[in-house]
Write a protein that binds this DNA or RNA. Structure first.
Lengths: 116, 116
DNA sequence: CTCTTGACTATCGGAAAGTGATATATCATA
DNA sequence: TATGATATATCACTTTCCGATAGTCAAGAG
């Protein structure tokens, strides 16, 4: 089913931010919001509409699962935790690598032009 | 008019790719398409709909201008060249820096977690 | 010359994605 | 008890994205 990494289509912005935020480990929705904010230095302010809509899409697409195995946290736990699936993780890593490549390439054209 | 960099709202994906592509210098539309593809390792395949729509939006927003001063290229030049305005360039650089920060932070949580 | 192909710009309609407002509920703190 | 942060959820609206389509021009094939 899954294409080879090179062919993998890039994720929409909000999805990308979320899977990147989840690379560190499981988080609940609200924490994802905050973490996305931190990672982007406050530039990305994801509201609940974007968050839960995108999160559900990611679950539908099989990149994220709600962790049921963590119910034992507390009796009255309102939080819903999410983590990457194996596939989600690999997608996230591919995206991260691409981002790195992109930044490197663009940066190089900036400094490089003046020297030669 | 322009907000301080820290407050600058992040650009939508297509706009981001375009301004990053233009950081190297002016390009015509078709070349932007190709360059965006290259920079993203083929992951982003921007079609004409996205390209020209977004390009016009960027012009409206004052981040990009069509370079009129380059008409002398050839009599029958169909190409339309675009370049960043001063503001567009600064926006692009802020975005680039953010992207770098994002990649660094996410990368660090990956390798860093296991050590300590 | 004509036909095709690739470079190049352009627009349209619909689909996908993103967003703020709103709602609800719990908990801590003043 | 009122305020504000935590936390989840949905709705309606707008923005963004994208493929299909269309057209022009230049170069090369036949």
């Amino acid at each position: 089913m899954s294409r080879r990494p090179e062919n993998q289509k890039s994720l929409p912005a909000a999805s990308l931010h979320i899977v990147l935020a989840l690379l560190d480990g499981e988080l609940h929705g609200y924490a994802v919001m905050q973490r996305v904010g931190e990672l982007s230095e406050g530039a990305v302010k994801m509201g609940p509409g974007t968050l839960y809509g995108t999160l559900n899409r990611l679950v539908d697409d099989g990149l994220v699962v709600e962790t049921t195995d963590r119910i034992e946290r507390s009796e009255s736990e309102r939080r819903r935790y999410y983590e990457l699936t194996a596939n989600g993780r690999s997608v996230a890593l591919v995206e991260l690598a691409r981002l790195r490549t992109l930044v490197d390439r663009v940066s190089r054209t900036l400094g490089g032009g003046a020297i030669a």
